[in-house]
């Protein structure tokens, strides 16, 4: 079988960070939703910008992280 091309592969570290970011986002969203249901809306602006920053990192990793061969 022909060896599969490794182009566009991510490193273990990049993938681990992407997974970690998603776990943080899930926890953050659950926490924010619970707080909003309790009537605490003051945390929304801060949570949004933290979430936005995490998404920016995740997008950068997914689209801009160097390939393994580079």
């Amino acid at each position: 079988m022909r060896k599969l091309p490794r182009k566009a592969h991510l490193s273990d570290a990049a993938l681990a960070v992407a997974l970690l970011i998603l776990a943080i986002q899930l926890y953050l969203f659950e926490t924010v939703l619970g707080a909003v249901l309790d009537g605490y809306r003051a945390i929304l602006p801060g949570s949004f910008f933290v979430s936005l920053a995490l998404t920016a990192v995740a997008l950068a990793l997914a689209f801009k992280a160097p390939d393994l061969e580079e």
Partner: peptide, 12 residues
Amino acid sequence: ARFLAVVSAGFT
């Protein structure tokens, strides 16, 4: 990783 990033954006 792109799928993860899109889901992350969804949470945002």
